[in-house]
Amino acid sequence: MNEDILKKVQSNPKFIELVHKKTSLGWMLSIIMLVIYYGFILTLAFSPKSLGTPIHEGSAITVGIPLGIFIIVSAFVLTGIYVRKANSEFDQLNKQIIEESR
């Protein structure tokens, strides 16, 4: 990449917008995933009994089961949210930045 293009891109407000949006979404979703997973790990470490309580009186299903499924599904949903946003809005912005850098 030559200096010219670099300067042009860096000073493009759309680039600043892209960086801001992409990094904040990426970090936000990462933190959500970490909180969900380590929240679960800490529950497991300090209060394993709570995961073993039945979801309602007399049920064989315990709280831990839907919670486990929820964590697996949430990983998938979070990636979905990111890809949806990145492949539409961010890519659109990115395309404009590339065109304007020429």
């Binding site: 979404l25 990426g26 990462s30 995961l51 990983a75």
Partner: peptide
């Protein structure tokens, strides 16, 4: 029983992080 599910979760939750921070 349940411990198997706990274990598999650990193998999955790295993937979103790869997407958000590493892949592109």
């Amino acid at each position: 029983g349940y411990d198997g599910l706990i274990y598999s979760m650990g193998f999955l939750v790295g993937w979103p992080i790869i997407l958000f921070l590493v892949a592109e």
